[in-house]
């Protein structure tokens, strides 16, 4: 474990806690894309298939359970909680995320390390995570102004993978081991997708103005 990876994991955890705070505190999920949450739930379930077979550390197991549990709770809340579900922007959250699932699965069938059930689903989860934020970014552009907690949610989610890239660079030099190219390339694509969001987020912070993404 190194500081970049630990920071990355903490940013990831913070992003989920910020989202839970927003939903719990405001009893509203306006501005949140349910489709992105569903994609993330699928990412965690397909990536952590080894949850009960390979024990790596208590930290690793606990974090996997927290990620799966919290994302499942958010998806449940946005669909079934009597108060929260009324604030879901159903008509704005129209990204065809099933295409993303299909494309990533086909890609995983062709591009993987070993042709085994677990490896293919692992590659699928890496590809899917890289694009899972797209419905959320599209929703933010459509809904115009972004409330603070939602902006912070996306910011920490972007920062998490950016720190993982630093972690892979660190491990390359310190452990003479390089990251799997599937993770590396997907991680770069994933972080690049946040680039314009980071730019407007920085502008809003510098000008102390409301975060506004151009349509």
């Amino acid at each position: 474990m190194n500081i970049f990876r630990f920071a990355g994991d903490m940013f990831h955890l913070i992003s989920i806690l910020v989202l839970l705070l927003k939903i719990y505190a405001t009893k509203s999920c306006s501005g949140i894309s349910l489709k992105t949450q569903e994609l993330y739930a699928l990412v965690f379930v397909t990536r952590y298939l080894d949850l009960f077979t390979d024990f790596i550390s208590v930290y690793n197991t606990v974090m996997k359970l927290v990620f799966i549990g919290s994302t499942a709770a958010i998806v449940w809340c946005m669909q079934w909680h009597p108060v929260v579900k009324r604030s879901y922007d159903r008509e704005l959250d129209t990204f065809r995320h099933y295409f993303l699932v299909g494309a990533c699965f086909v890609l995983a069938l062709f591009l993987h390390e070993n042709f085994t059930f677990q490896e293919i689903f692992w590659a699928f989860s890496i590809y899917l995570e890289a694009v899972a934020i797209l419905p959320q970014l599209v929703l933010l552009q459509r809904s115009g102004n972004v409330d603070n907690l939602t902006g912070q949610y996306v910011f920490f989610l972007g920062a998490y993978r950016a720190f993982y890239i630093l972690n892979w660079i660190y491990r390359y030099f310190m452990e003479q081991r390089f990251s799997r190219w599937i993770s590396c390339i997907s991680g770069l694509v994933q972080t690049a997708l946040y680039a314009d969001f980071f730019y407007y987020y920085f502008l809003s912070w510098k000008n102390n103005a409301k975060l506004h993404l151009p349509a």
């Binding site: 390979d54 974090m63 996997k64």
Partner: peptide, 10 residues
């Protein structure tokens, strides 16, 4: 040659 990283990351 360098080994790839173990699958110990989240």
């Amino acid at each position: 040659c360098f080994q790839t990283l173990p699958k110990d990351e989240l």
